[in-house]
Design a protein around this nucleic acid. Structure first.
Length: 585
RNA sequence: GGCCCCGUGGUGUAGCGGCCUAACAUGCCACCCUGUCAAGGUGGAGAUCGUCGGUUCGAAUCCGAUCGGGGUCGCCA
């Protein structure tokens, strides 16, 4: 080893020690006589002091520049009281080199490594190997490792074994678009990259593994978002002989431990609150509400049922609803802000946003003139609005009300500063419907995945009114994000076929597409359940970033490509020929 | 695929029709400087304003196209 000590580990107890360090020049302060160099390695930073008395070593200290890779040998000394730097973990000591060797020079880097300045993301990604040197980036990557290591140990200690599953698998038409990999051996045929190891882990359960987990890469060929990329990593796990409570309890324990150990944020509640899906939709308009703040929906349909206000009346008459949010202390919201909120409501499909400001003695509202005093009083009573409060409302079909009012609530949460960055509000959402109707395709589809099981109590509903049948699905959410989900699975062929059939798969298609799992379920498949939990999202939540690229060492850009490696790229015609592929002109 | 935003020295920004032969900060280079830690001081180099085309007497500045990037809707079982 060219080094025997890591910079960041040095402290007063090392006083007098002779150490060999190696790392990168973080910053250099040349006083002509004394030269100070902050030396950085993977562990942190320590200050080197070059004294002019040692002419040869001092000359090297004079020559080096930021990001040069150097090694030094020197003595650790305690700093005098006035020169201690409390901002540095090693700030109580410094190293006086008696030897300094340049291992490799560096040009001026294309962006600051020694200052946390916002730089064009593409530039960072193109030089990710330099970006990773930035302490704030490196810290996240190390945290990610620590969290994953904890997951591995936690599960291993509880009898889980990590099993790898293939990444070249069979394409199935369900779900997201598959990434395809052409087969050379069988021209014209393709592998797909897994969207998740769902079927494979069930096969492991049939295979008697009983407790499986994997840090699994998952691929979806869909457009990206700030919190969504083409390849992501999930903690995939599955257990045999469990019910939903067993799985949720275990994940809850794991996530609580992780939150305590790896985040300074406070945990709003553990055990995590349970939220029924329909309840969540009714109160928040979304199945992954941000529970850090209230602003819940109130159904004011009853208060305005006989209203002369045509917008409310026609919505109610048409089977719709009128829902409101009471916004405390916001009666003085400016016209401009109301307009912006209205625009957000419209983006969610609403035709507009009704509002009433309860100011001293009078109502601030363009719709007040359409409402009777009794109706206004009823709205006020139902929403609990006090003097100084604002009430906003959307009237439409339930789905539209949910979407539009959710967006308004989300925006209000941001504007009012209610999204406490130092709180983690985990929760479980349960009670999802098993199936949802796809009008455009005229068929039922799985709400989550086609393997999700259901309680016996729901069986009759599947035949009579499939949309009302509940499931064994559970999602874990935090601060408005879905972090993962799972279920207790269907473990017999008959039920699996029934669900697939309802989704419109003919018996032949079922066998073609899902034959493996259907066959496997015949052979004494155990009751089983598990989760797929997004690791990228979890790390994002822990560090408080909304950019998924911040938590991935070598991420794809928002545009889907890899700016570092230059992928995707064209390939040699000979490679295409071998695969039996031709590009359409 | 639709919509919105961005593209000026190495980096981050300003300039938004003639005052721009492009400004500021930082970085870079040289010199001075023995206790700094975003060190300080003096001096210097460095961009024709993503690309192409148009409008105009005149464009970084207006218009169109295009490329690249970011966000979002669709999409994401």
């Amino acid at each position: 080893m060219l080094k025997d000590t890591y910079c960041g580990t040095l402290g007063p107890s090392d006083e007098g020690k002779r150490v060999r360090l190696a790392g990168w020049v973080h910053r250099r302060r040349d006083h002509g006589g004394l030269i100070f160099i902050d030396l950085r390695d993977s562990s942190g930073i320590v200050q080197l002091v070059f004294n002019p008395d040692d002419v040869e070593t001092h000359a090297v200290g004079h020559r080096v520049r930021p990001e040069w890779c150097i090694t030094v040998e020197g003595t650790v000394q305690r700093r005098s009281d006035e020169t201690v730097n409390p901002n540095l973990t090693t700030g109580a000591v410094e190293v006086f080199p008696s030897r300094c060797e340049v291992l490799n020079e560096s040009p001026t880097p294309p962006f600051y490594i020694n200052e946390p300045v916002d730089v064009d993301e593409q530039l960072r990604l193109k030089h990710r190997y330099l970006d990773l040197r930035r302490p704030e980036v490196a810290e996240v990557i190390r945290l990610r490792h620590e969290v994953v290591r904890y997951m591995r140990n936690f599960l291993s200690d509880r009898g889980f074994i990590e099993v790898e599953t293939p990444t070249l698998i069979k394409s199935t038409p369900e779900g997201a678009r598959d990434f395809l990999v052409p087969s050379r051996v069988r021209p014209g045929q393709f592998f797909a990259l897994p969207q998740s190891p769902q079927i494979l882990k069930e096969l492991l359960m049939v295979g008697g593994v009983e407790r499986y987990f994997q840090i699994a890469r998952c691929y979806r060929d869909e457009d990206t978002r700030a919190n969504r990329v083409a390849e992501h990593t999930q903690l995939d796990m599955e257990m045999s002989f469990v019910d939903t409570e067993d799985v949720m309890g275990l994940v809850e324990e794991l996530y609580t431990e992780i939150a305590w150990r790896f985040s300074t944020k406070k945990l709003a509640a553990s055990p995590f609150p349970r939220l029924d899906y329909h309840d969540a939709m009714s109160r928040f308009g979304i199945d992954r509400p941000d529970l850090r703040y209230g602003l819940e929906f109130v159904d004011i349909g009853g208060a305005v049922a006989g209203s002369g206000f045509q917008v409310f009346r026609s919505a109610l008459d048409g089977g719709g609803q009128v829902k409101a949010i009471r916004v405390p202390g916001k009666a003085d919201t400016t016209r401009r802000e109301i307009d912006e909120l209205t625009e957000i409501a419209r983006s969610g499909g609403a035709k507009g946003l009704a509002y009433i400001g309860f100011t001293a003695g009078e109502l601030r509202s363009p719709i007040a003139k359409f409402l009777s005093e009794a109706e206004v009083a009823a709205i006020r009573a139902q929403t609990g609005a006090q003097e100084g409060d604002l009430v906003v409302a959307v009237a439409d079909q339930p789905a539209t009300v949910a979407t539009a009012l959710h967006r308004v609530r989300d925006e209000l949460g941001t504007r009012m500063g209610l999204k406490d960055a130092d709180t983690l509000h985990f929760a479980w959402v349960t009670g999802f419907p098993l199936l949802e109707w796809r009008p455009e395709e005229n068929r039922w589809d799985a709400t989550h995945n086609p393997f999700c099981g259901f309680p016996e109590s729901e069986r009759a509903k599947l035949d009579q009114d499939p949309g009302t049948a509940g499931s064994y699905q559970y999602d874990i959410i935090c601060n408005g994000d879905e972090l993962g989900g799972g279920s207790v699975r269907i473990n017999n062929r008959a039920d699996q076929e029934k669900v697939l059939a309802m989704m419109g798969h003919s018996p032949e298609q079922q066998q073609e597409r899902f034959g493996v799992i259907l066959d496997a379920l015949e052979y004494g498949a155990p009751p089983m359940g598990g989760v797929g939990a997004g690791i990228d999202r979890l790390i994002m939540t822990l560090v408080g970033t909304d950019n998924i690229r911040d938590v991935i060492a070598f991420p794809k850009a928002s545009s889907g490509g890899d700016p570092l490696m230059g992928a995707p790229s064209e390939v040699d015609p000979a490679q295409l020929a071998e695969l039996g592929l031709a590009l359409r002109p």
